[in-house]
């Protein structure tokens, strides 16, 4: 593991080069590119706002604003996985012809999505400040980086494993898409953790992504600190998932180039 991290560090310029490429592809060299990447989560916010404030009355004050705070962390998870699952196959011309640590490909894709996520959070903060709902200073600057870090660990592990598995099972992207659509309703994005019946609540507390999204909404929307214990648990779980995914990826890594 340590050796692997060292090897990845040796190729840090490759990560940088892939990052530049990723941004070029995503934003097409224009500021409008950021607008386009915001469009999808904003559209979701609009739809669910309509359903849960006009059709059903959900008991959350300023519901659209709440949704906005919950949607960006979800969107990072969702789009990073969808983009990275096909990444190694898409870069087969590199993978087949040069030796380098393959996990760099999905990691760079995850990093592009992560930076995009940070830009989105900045826009969200500006928006909140504009509405006079600027979240408290100390809470914000401590919890947001920690939550973002935990989510990054979780997503990058899953992204590496998914991209490797996709080389072998070429229908994995459809399965993943389907799974993510379902999973969306099992994390507290369109509802809060408080609305979950107590007997189901423990499952949510064990789900690291649920804890992370709940943490983000607490800080941004409810202006309250998240539960440190739950965050610790989410970090531990994300770490274990990360290590497991890298271990599984290493098992199949040598078989990847010949399957392309």
């Amino acid at each position: 593991m340590l050796k692997q991290i060292k090897n990845i560090f040796h190729y840090r310029w490759l990560i940088y080069a892939f990052l530049v490429r990723g941004f070029k592809a995503k934003y097409k060299n224009s500021f409008l590119g950021i607008f386009w990447s915001l469009l999808n989560p904003l559209l979701n916010v609009l739809i669910f706002s309509f359903v849960f404030t006009v059709i059903f009355k959900i008991g959350i004050k300023d519901y659209p604003l709440y949704l906005l705070c919950a949607m960006f962390p979800w969107n990072f998870f969702n789009s990073a996985l969808i983009n990275s699952v096909v990444s190694i196959v898409e870069d087969s011309s590199f993978v087949k012809n040069v030796y380098f640590p393959l996990e760099i490909v999905p990691l760079a894709v995850t990093a592009v999505n992560f930076v995009n996520f940070l830009i989105e959070l900045t826009i969200l903060l500006i928006f909140l400040a504009f509405l006079g709902k600027w979240p408290g200073g100390a809470i914000l600057w401590f919890y947001i980086p920690v939550l973002a870090f935990i989510e990054f660990i979780l997503v990058s592990g899953l992204a590496v494993l998914a991209s490797g598995l996709f080389v072998i099972f070429r229908d994995l992207n459809f399965i993943l898409n389907f799974f993510l659509r379902l999973f969306f309703y099992f994390v507290p994005v369109v509802y809060t953790l408080e609305l979950v019946p107590p007997r189901w609540n423990f499952i949510y507390r064990l789900n690291p992504l649920a804890v992370i999204i709940d943490g983000f909404t607490r800080v941004f929307f409810f202006n309250a600190p998240p539960d440190i214990f739950r965050m610790g648990l989410a970090l531990a779980e994300s770490g274990i998932i990360f290590i497991f995914c890298f271990w599984a990826f290493n098992k199949m890594r040598m078989a990847i180039p010949e399957r392309l």
């Binding site: 190729y11 310029w13 490759l14 940088y16 080069a17 892939f18 490429r21 070029k24 040069v98 380098f100």
Partner: peptide
């Protein structure tokens, strides 16, 4: 889509060069 220079940097990095 990349210029010759950018391609050289990318490929140099793939060969492990800083």
């Amino acid at each position: 889509e990349f210029t010759g220079l950018e391609n050289l940097y990318l490929h140099g990095a793939i060969f492990g060069l800083s």
